[in-house]
Design a protein around this nucleic acid. Sequence first.
RNA 1: GGAGGGUUGGCAGAGUGGUAAUGCAGUGGUUUCGAAAACCAUCGGGUGAAAGCCCUCGUAGGUUCAAAUCCUACACCCUCCGCCA
Length: 424
Amino acid sequence: MLDINFIRENTDLVKKAVLDKEIKLDVNELLKLDDRRRELLGKVEDLRAQRNQAAKERNIELGKKVKGELDGLEDELRKVEEKFRELMLLAPNIPAPDAPVGKDAQNNEVIYKWGNKPDFDFEVKDHIELGKNLDILDLEQGAKVSGFRGYYLKNEGAVLHWAILRLAMDRILSHGFSLMVPPTLVHEEVLEGSGHFPFGKENIYQIANPGKLDSGEDIKKPVFLTGTSEPSLLAYFMGKTLSEEDLPVKVAAMTQCYRSEVGDYGKDTRGLYRIHEFTKVEQVVICSADLDESEKLFKEMQEISQKILEDLGIPYQVIATSTGDMGAGKYRMNDIEAWMPGRNKYGETHSNSNLTDWQARRLNIKVRYKNEDIKYVYTLNNTVIASPRILIAILENFQQKDGSIKIPDILIPYTGFSEISSKH
RNA sequence: GGAGGGUUGGCAGAGUGGUAAUGCAGUGGUUUCGAAAACCAUCGGGUGAAAGCCCUCGUAGGUUCAAAUCCUACACCCUCCGCCA
């Protein structure tokens, strides 16, 4: 969410952001609605002041007269405010001045490359074939049990999954992030707060049977499965005013993530790349309302993710996402793409975002400074590791001629084995 | 499954129909070599240059000229009994 005063004073900037991010919002309509809202609010507050005065004076006659005028206006105000809020939820954050402008991923810019792509002197297999041959991945049974995009990891495959997640957990703990186990079933306002609603609503699963009340009545408030732990980590702080010395808040969680992928029919239909549920270690930072500090923390998180890939020995590139690809709430977003030989291209494995105060306004998270100033905090979030997608890169980059997989040294303490070869 | 009690600012806590006491903590200041103590101011949110005005007593409805207070529904917390692990 943006400050309505900011929208009034920087209308052109907001209109440009709406255009660059391809948001369906008529800024003029929003401003007109705000005019009407202010007008009504003024009248209503005036009448309320009269009513309060009448009550103080026990002036029942005046009170009755005021009530008559107030009822209709309050009703209209409620309707106008509801519509106003709807449009406000669509107003996008202003992207960073150096973010590439463009409507989609075509306009993303590669800003950094690391590592040498492996040079195979044999025919490269993809993770599907490797996984099947080594008996560590079963997509057929996954589909039978869970439907399209279902999977089983087995044997060393399952161990490898948890090994890399444990490595990621150790990394964030050593960087001073505190661990949470947050809900993955959340209410609508949590996803609205993070900005996943209304924009990405179709990618979120809703629970069909949210349960019953003590009285035996069905629960009516909808419940959703989160696609990342970011919303619930942030929502822990919603409605709170933090103290300056509490910042920056650095929290992280490892949760199962659920995505319906309804907007991506026919995309990446094979293997572990695009699946309905996966496990992710995610980090969230809440910091002072200071752009420089948030950019510093953004960089810090970026380095944690890059270092993990470097320690694993996986070639990658860092992408500055374009305005159209970054999402409405974001000021800046960098993706990391890991080299995936089976696809013969880079595939997105990480995403790091700075949302400045856009989420904080929705979630009402503030900071009180020593001098008593109160401001909305800035929020950031970053992928530390997401598995099994990252396994694609590991299996495919470290495959050997005989079809075995060499495990990166850094992972051996977590796996307990240094290679996966077919012996089942 | 049954029976009670409760929810008011960061915390404690008054307020049972007339528009939110008070204390502690916090912040700024006076004093001090410095601190403590004391004293003064400030001390829920919004708007505003300020005065002021509006909002706010778990949430949502309702009754009333007027609701923290009365009514209805719901949420959450606590205690006890039962059951289960």
